Computed example of a mutant assay.
Amino acid sequence: MSRTKRTPAGDALTDFILDLFRANNLVLTAGDRLVAPLGLTSARWQILGAIVSAERPEPVAWLARNLGANRQNVQRIVNDLARDGLVGFEINPHHRRAQLVVLTDKGRQAFDAALRLQIPWVNGLADGLSVKEIETAHRVVTALRSRLEGSGEAEE
């Protein structure tokens, strides 16, 4: 049986993707440890960040799309955040059933506190890496994400 072989670029990308998986797991674990004193997890912090960075209040489906995440998982986390008073809901004038998710004052305070913890952590993590190296890695990851989104392979 004939086996198709990876190109050298395919081999290099496979190694890169495996390291991305490992790095993602380590980043999530480190994030969980970092924000645990605030009653947050990496997932909750990520959702709060998506709400903060949105130009206007968005429904859960849009937040999930922007994060490249599963809508049901984002809904579950948003419900937990709402139960803890970190987010609330507003009427969506464009869709009766898809309420808009908004940050509460308590949610803003939690997000700001997380950023105060993240700044020294990320600065230490970046120590010894050049801005150019980081920007190159960012371009590669962005290109991969774009290709995956365009092919539908990243969708759930």
Rank of each mutant, 00 (worst) to 15 (best):
A82R: 06
L38D: 03
L81N: 07
G128N: 07
E155F: 08
E153P: 00
S146Y: 05
A64G: 04
V74R: 04
D19W: 12
S146K: 11
G124F: 09
A54M: 07
E133G: 14
G85K: 01
A36K: 14
R22H: 12
R3F: 11
V141Y: 02
A30E: 14
L148A: 09
Q109S: 12
S146G: 07
L63F: 04
V131W: 00
N92E: 01
F21T: 13
W45A: 15
A126E: 14
A36E: 13
M1W: 01
L63M: 06
D84C: 02
N123Q: 15
I119L: 15
L144P: 05
I51H: 00
A30H: 06
V122F: 07
R108P: 02
D11S: 06
D15P: 00
S146D: 09
L144G: 06
V74E: 00
N25S: 13
L38S: 02
V78Y: 00
K132V: 08
L63Y: 05
R139G: 11
G124I: 09
G10E: 09
A54P: 05
N73F: 06
G10W: 04
N25K: 13
H138N: 15
D19H: 13
A69I: 00
G128A: 04
A98V: 02
A36H: 13
D15I: 00
L48T: 09
L115I: 12
R83W: 15
L115M: 12
V101L: 01
V101K: 02
